[in-house]
């Protein structure tokens, strides 16, 4: 078998392999006006991150580059490399229009605000 054939086969095999999906670890911190969500997504760059809000479902997906390519050269493995996905359901108490996202050093930070309705309001009597 020629070398190029072997390389082609290897490529095919890695393409056929379904990339594993991991659920990123999540911390939630509540503050006066809202919440900060922290998710560990090492290996994901900005352009490979997608955040979608559909009705009350907030879906986060991150792709890791070069996923699985170098597995054949592995000498010792303690962790597996894969893509990330997690969906969170937002309660009506959260403002669905004010969601900010920031990715830095492999951590995604989502900032959510509490919905104005849930804050205590003085009702004037007519």
């Amino acid at each position: 078998m020629s070398k190029t054939q072997k390389v082609e086969e290897k490529k095919q095999a890695s393409q056929n392999k379904v990339a594993q999906i991991f659920q990123p670890n999540l911390d939630i911190v509540e503050h006066e006006n809202g919440f900060h969500l922290y998710m560990d997504m090492p290996g994901v760059s900005k352009e490979d991150l997608s955040i979608k809000l559909e009705k009350d479902s907030l879906s986060i997906e991150g792709k890791v580059k070069g996923n699985g390519e170098s597995s054949s050269d592995s000498i010792y493995q303690e962790y597996k490399v894969g893509n990330y996905a997690r969906t969170l359901k937002l309660s009506p108490d959260i403002d669905h229009n004010e969601i900010n996202a920031n990715l830095e050093d492999g951590i995604l930070t989502l900032s959510l605000l509490k919905a104005p309705e849930t804050k205590a309001r003085q009702i004037s009597v007519n």
Binding site: N25, L26, D27, I28, V29, E30, H31, E32, F35, H36, Y38, D40
Partner: peptide, 13 residues
């Protein structure tokens, strides 16, 4: 570091 007055309500990391 978390802002003052904030509290961790869920922790996995």
């Amino acid at each position: 570091k978390h802002e003052e007055g904030s509290r961790v309500i869920h922790k996995e990391r």
